[in-house]
Amino acid sequence: MAQHSSKKVIFAALAGNAMIAVTKFAAAAFTGSSAMFSEGIHSTVDTGNQALLLYGLKRASRPADERHPFGYGSEIYFWAFVVAILIFAVGAGVSFYEGVHKLQDPHPVSDAYVNYIVLAFAMVFEGAAWWVAYRAFKQGKGKLGYLKAIQASKDPSIFTVLLEDSAAMAGLVVAFVGILLAQILGIPELDGAASMVIGVILAMAAVLLAYETKGLLIGEGAQPALVRQLRGIVQDHDAVFHINELLTLHQGPQDLLVTVSVDFHPHLSADEVEAAIADLELSMKRADGVVRRVFVEAQSWRAHRAAVRHADI
């Protein structure tokens, strides 16, 4: 269900960017607007990025095999990081370069009304794609603030599209204002300045996206609320005397690995310990659909502490 939502968001963004990219380039060629050319680059990069995210989702959905026994779920994190690099290197880099070039060789924008028409249509298409991404993101963020929700999210496909579309909407406003002021004031350099501002906006979005996906690539645990829930399931079990350690690791947006070291009551037989382990695994998987693999280790708390001290030496 979560992956279906991610694909819906990406397809909406892909359709919106693809429909407007060619139009922006045509308008830039017709009017000579630097800001409009930057917007065309922006839409082209975004279209390619959404294609990469779809490719990443497809790759991540492959079943586990001998070479990758835990599956390929984390591959979506890699492709989201590639998207961040492309936004920074291509989108921001080309936009900033185009703005600098316009400042060095300023020339007035001709037939500016063409740009206004294209920008208006772009706002409609981009706005529709942004709304789809925003609704999906808002549904999953709960009571968290937007920045906190991005930091806590384990599905980069949704917040990547939301960041891209937010940057796109901001870029359209900047392009409109830059072209309008250049026309009214007769200062063509303002068109180039608008292109540079668009580059800065894209760079900021790319840095934030790269930072968040880097954390997912390195390996992030489950959200604190889920960790507390899982810990409660283990601690409340009749067979458990003490929890030594509970660790979680997201192998993908919907693939959580849980490892638990448990000190069971000493009076339990081997069969009773085995039954308790099976019950704990089933209970934790039922607690949240993202819990895919659970490993429970039976270990006295003294032995666990000794092992931890030995590892720290």
Rank of each mutant, 00 (worst) to 15 (best):
M1K: 04
I10T: 11
A12M: 13
L14E: 01
L14T: 02
A15F: 13
A15Q: 04
A15T: 14
G16K: 01
N17I: 07
N17Y: 12
A21R: 03
A27P: 02
G32I: 06
S33P: 06
A35N: 00
A35G: 01
S43C: 05
V45R: 10
L53N: 04
L57P: 05
R59L: 13
S61L: 03
A64V: 00
E66Y: 00
R67L: 08
H68R: 11
G71I: 06
S74P: 02
I76F: 06
F78S: 12
F78G: 07
F81W: 13
F81Y: 12
F81S: 14
V83S: 11
I85V: 15
A89T: 11
V90F: 13
G91R: 03
G93P: 11
F96Y: 13
Y97C: 11
E98M: 10
A112S: 15
Y113C: 07
N115Q: 10
I117Y: 12
I117S: 10
L119A: 14
A122I: 01
E126Y: 01
V132D: 02
A136M: 06
F137T: 10
G140N: 12
K141S: 15
L144D: 15
Y146D: 14
D155F: 08
S157E: 04
F159L: 03
T160C: 05
L163V: 14
E164F: 03
A168R: 00
G171W: 01
L172T: 04
L172F: 10
L181N: 07
A182D: 05
A182G: 10
Q183I: 08
Q183E: 15
I184K: 08
L185K: 14
L185Y: 08
L190C: 06
D191M: 09
M196F: 05
V197R: 02
V197T: 10
I201C: 04
L202V: 11
A203K: 02
A203D: 00
L217N: 05
G219C: 05
L230G: 12
G232I: 10
I233N: 13
D238F: 06
N244H: 07
L247C: 07
L249Y: 07
Q251E: 06
Q254T: 09
Q254G: 02
L256S: 09
D263V: 06
H267D: 13
V273D: 00
I277K: 12
I277N: 05
M284S: 07
V290R: 12
V290N: 09
V291L: 10
E297G: 01
Q299M: 15
R302L: 13
H304Y: 15
A306F: 04
V308D: 05
D312H: 08
I313F: 08
